[in-house]
């Protein structure tokens, strides 16, 4: 138990992880917002696919001694472009992602096997880092999150229209295809940023789970993104704070919080529909 939670020296530890907390807050805001579109566009699987190629990019960057963040972003963007071009129909998209994913993972594993540096660096790319986000990395995360959040705010309305009601949006002259590509690029950036904190295998805990929980609770286009954002921020920042003392990766804490929120959301939904049926009957 002491390895899991250790709150001694907490007051001295907090300033040390200030960077991580800022990164976590921004990741949460970004992940929660874009997650709503991931859900409405049915792109959960694409998130997974992009994250594996992002991992491959990061692993290659690690091997050849380049900036890991840059590698992760490059891998993500390549994956997003391939999925956007080849997978405009949902059915094609899933098979293309399924084909890309193991390839990306394989390349990444190869690069890591050849890498002779610290083992923690290797493992971190797949399952998340120990709490130590350095200054250049935090700068990178801040920049990426800001681009994604700002980009989403600009295209929010037409992207919602194109995601929720594509046939009518297209008839009304909304450039649904271009918006789809813009969305994939924003998603690629979001994935690349998340991979560096929670790891390639667990990206969905930030980009899917909070939005899925929010959509269990509300159908309001205002409350869904707000709740999703709150859930994601609570998961990441809470996860970092809980992980602080133990020296373990933050990802299990983040994923557990995020999953618990989802469970609670389902229970609340169940209770609500239960009372409704009773009232009706």
């Amino acid at each position: 138990m002491e390895r899991l939670f250790d709150f001694s020296d907490y007051d001295q530890l907090i300033p040390l992880v200030q960077n991580s907390l800022i990164a976590g807050l921004l990741l949460g805001i970004m992940g929660g917002l874009i997650g709503v579109f991931v859900m409405t566009r049915d792109m959960s699987f694409a998130v997974h696919g992009i994250s594996e190629l992002s991992f491959a990019g990061a692993a290659i960057a690690l091997l050849v001694g380049l900036n890991v963040a840059l590698g992760a972003t490059f891998g993500s963007i390549v994956a997003a472009i391939i999925i956007a071009i080849l997978g405009s129909r949902a059915k094609d998209r899933n098979s293309i992602i399924a084909v890309l994913m193991p390839f990306g993972l394989g390349i990444g594993i190869l690069a890591l096997a050849l890498y002779e540096g610290r083992a923690a660096n290797k493992f971190g790319l797949l399952t998340g880092q120990i709490i130590a986000v350095d200054d250049p990395q935090v700068f990178w995360l801040i920049a990426t999150s800001l681009v994604v959040v700002f980009g989403l705010l600009v295209v929010w309305r037409p992207l919602s229209f194109a995601s929720l009601d594509p046939e009518v949006a297209e008839a009304r002259g909304v450039p649904t295809k271009a918006l789809g590509i813009v969305f994939m690029l924003l998603l690629a950036l979001a994935v690349a940023a998340s991979v560096q904190v929670v790891g390639a295998l667990l990206v969905m805990t930030l980009l899917v789970t909070p939005a899925a929980a929010a959509l269990r609770l509300t159908s309001s286009p205002l409350w869904a993104p707000l709740l999703s954002m709150i859930f994601a921020v609570v998961s990441v920042v809470g996860g970092i704070l809980l992980a602080l003392g133990g020296g373990l990766p933050i990802s299990p804490y983040v994923t557990t919080l995020s999953f618990a929120i989802y469970l609670v959301a389902r229970v609340i939904e169940k209770l609500r529909t239960g009372t409704k049926t009773k009232q009706a009957g």
Binding site: S160, L164, D165, S220
Partner: peptide
């Protein structure tokens, strides 16, 4: 989906515009 009847209706009016609703 995060969409109610009145939201679907509103998209017919200003869904094509940039920015937040």
């Amino acid at each position: 989906l995060p969409l109610r009847a009145k939201d679907l209706l509103r998209m017919g009016l200003d869904g094509h515009r940039f920015g937040l609703p």
